Computed example of a mutant assay.
Amino acid sequence: MKQYLNDFLNGQLIILKQMASSDLDEFIKVENEKSTLLLANDDIPFPHTVEDHTSFFQNISGKKQEFFFGIFEKTTQQFIGSCGVYAINWTNSTCSVGISISEKWHGKGLGTDAMQTLITFIFNYIAINKIKLQVFSFNLGAIRSYEKCGFTKEGTLRNEIFRFGKFHDIIVFGLLREEWLSRS
């Protein structure tokens, strides 16, 4: 039991922790990076103000029906991104997830490890049967990561996002509890 408690929200490469106000500056840096604005948000890719991020940061920490974590590199304890569980539907036992990783940490497996740790948290501690997410069709690294985590493509929202001067699809993925259990 003691080892199980030590491994709580610890991945192989990362640790998920509730963010503190001291993490706000690093959070703002990651959220305003070009890659985050283009790959992790369907708004017009325009940097948000410090006030926008501060307001979001304060609002999310007060919500009891959402879970928002900072992602910290395990060895250095450096803040590298964030992830969260939102849109929890207790009636149908579903939720959505999202993740954002600083571009200097892309391609190193940390996002996959963070998502796997988040999935484990959800299926072990929340009465959820299905996790959903959406990803832009041009975000090939994220798509590979989600597939490694066991997500299955469920559909395509055609011409749903405007980036780089043209419309692109959004791919909808899902992961069922039974699928996750069969992989564990």
Results as ranks from 00 to 15, higher is better:
Pro45Trp: 04
Ile28Thr: 07
Glu51Asn: 12
Pro47Val: 05
Lys34Pro: 00
Ile44Ser: 05
Phe46Asp: 09
Asp42Val: 09
Pro47Gly: 06
Glu31Phe: 04
Met19Trp: 10
Leu37Asp: 04
Ser55Ala: 13
Phe46Met: 13
Phe57Lys: 03
Asn41Pro: 00
Leu16Asp: 02
Glu33Thr: 11
Ala40Arg: 00
Glu31Asn: 15
Ile14Thr: 14
Leu37Ile: 07
Ile14Gly: 02
Thr49Lys: 00
Ser55Asp: 13
Asn32Gln: 09
Leu16Cys: 05
Ile28Val: 13
Ser21Cys: 04
Leu16Ile: 11
Asn32Gly: 08
Leu38His: 12
Ile14Asp: 01
Glu26Gly: 13
Pro45Ser: 12
Pro47Lys: 06
Ile14Trp: 05
Leu16Gly: 06
Leu38Met: 15
Leu39Gln: 12
Met19Pro: 07
Ile14Cys: 11
Pro45Asp: 09
Glu51Tyr: 06
Leu39Tyr: 13
Thr36Trp: 00
Ala20Ser: 15
Glu26Leu: 11
Lys34Ala: 09
Thr54Cys: 01
Leu38Phe: 14
Ile44Met: 06
Ala40Asp: 10
Lys17Leu: 07
Lys17Ile: 02
Ile15Lys: 14
Lys29Thr: 14
Asn41Ile: 05
Leu38Trp: 09
Pro45Ile: 08
Phe56Met: 04
Lys17Gln: 13
Ala40Lys: 00
Glu26Gln: 15
Ile14Ala: 03
Leu38Glu: 15
Gln18Leu: 10
Leu38Ser: 06
Ile14Tyr: 03
Asp25Ile: 07
Leu37Pro: 05
Thr54Gln: 10
Met19Arg: 08
Ile28Gly: 01
Asn32Leu: 06
Glu51Cys: 02
Phe27Lys: 01
Thr54Ala: 06
Ser35Met: 12
Ser35Gln: 14
Val30Gly: 02
Thr36Ser: 15
Leu16Phe: 07
Leu24Tyr: 04
Glu26Tyr: 06
Thr36Val: 11
Ala40Gln: 05
Lys17Thr: 14
Phe46Gly: 01
Phe46Lys: 15
Ala40Ser: 15
Val30Ala: 04
Val50Pro: 00
Asp23Ser: 08
Asp23Ala: 09
